[in-house]
Amino acid sequence: MARRKKIYEGKAKILYEGPEPGTFVQYFKDDATAFNAEKKDVIEGKGVLNNRLSEFFMNGLTAVGIPNHFIRRINMREQLIRQVEIIPLEVIVRNYAAGSLSKRLGIEEGTALPRPIIEFCYKDDALGDPLVAEEHIIAFGWAAQQDLDDMVALALRVNDFLSGVMFGVGIRLVDFKIEIGRVWDNDFQRLIVADEISPDSCRLWDMETGQKLDKDVFRRDLGNLADAYTEVARRLGVLPSNVTHAVKPTLIN
């Protein structure tokens, strides 16, 4: 596909103008960032893995009736997605204590939570994506109460799906974050899952060993990030079972 007009570039992805109105091309980069981009590196093959894994998860959501922006994969690094109006919130679902929750509340990492906990963060890199309450969201007009109710319901459905898929391959879904966008069908608004679902946006631990298979490998210098993501893809059948490491790919356009 010929390169099109760049719409937006984030830390891990680039959005280009799509071939048809109402579409974007989402390109996955090899860049890895942590701590609000204070730590940076380029991990060969990461973008290819996240493209394939996000395709796998989005197709799975579609199969169980959870609406999302994915249309089809174009090549190794790009996918065609539906244009949405992103709500400026990260929706975080936590099944076990980890990361910032453990630090804030002093709960030991790995502690099972009594039920899934949903948190919201305001998407603003300059502010460090701060945690916000529902009162902030409604007061500042980022989403209405009905939107929030629908977002919580959508996030819990995604959690049920992802937890089951990961359990089936021996991986514990500790937590994850998604973004949600608005689309319009004539005068009717719907909320759908957007952005990506990949090890960049999930905490994934091996159920037997506790080995981390997500971006904490990069955050905490626990090994090779591409190897961790490759293991997730291998278990899910996204890569052949004999692949142990994703080498630098050749981009196909």
Rank of each mutant, 00 (worst) to 15 (best):
P130D: 07
T111S: 15
G141F: 09
A37H: 14
I81G: 00
P114R: 12
G60T: 06
Q79H: 07
G65R: 09
E44W: 07
N95K: 11
A144D: 12
I87Q: 01
G47I: 02
F56K: 04
A126W: 09
T33M: 14
L89I: 01
G128Q: 14
G47A: 05
L105F: 15
S102V: 02
C121N: 12
E135F: 07
I81P: 01
R82G: 07
A139T: 11
L127N: 11
G106Q: 09
V91R: 03
L89K: 01
I87M: 12
G65Q: 07
A112F: 09
C121R: 15
G110Y: 05
S54H: 03
L131G: 03
R94Y: 09
E78G: 02
A63P: 00
P88H: 09
L101W: 02
K103L: 11
I87G: 04
L80Y: 07
A112N: 08
R77L: 10
S100E: 13
A133G: 13
I117E: 06
A133E: 13
F56R: 04
L105W: 11
P88F: 05
V84Y: 02
D31E: 12
N95L: 13
A139E: 13
R94S: 06
I71R: 08
G65P: 04
E119S: 13
E90R: 11
R104G: 09
A133H: 11
K123A: 06
R73Q: 08
I86D: 02
A34T: 05
F57L: 07
F28E: 00
V42Y: 08
G60E: 04
D129H: 12
R52E: 01
Q79K: 10
V132H: 09
A32S: 08
N95S: 12
E55N: 13
G128A: 14
H69L: 05
C121E: 06
S54P: 02
L131T: 05
I138E: 05
A32E: 00
E108T: 10
E78R: 15
D31L: 10
H69M: 05
L80F: 12
D41I: 04
H69P: 00
R73A: 07
V64T: 12
A97L: 06
R77D: 01
S102G: 08
E85D: 14
E108H: 06
F140T: 10
V42I: 14
V84M: 12
A112G: 05
Y122G: 03
I43N: 00
R72I: 00
F70D: 03
E78C: 05
A97F: 03
I66T: 11
N75H: 15
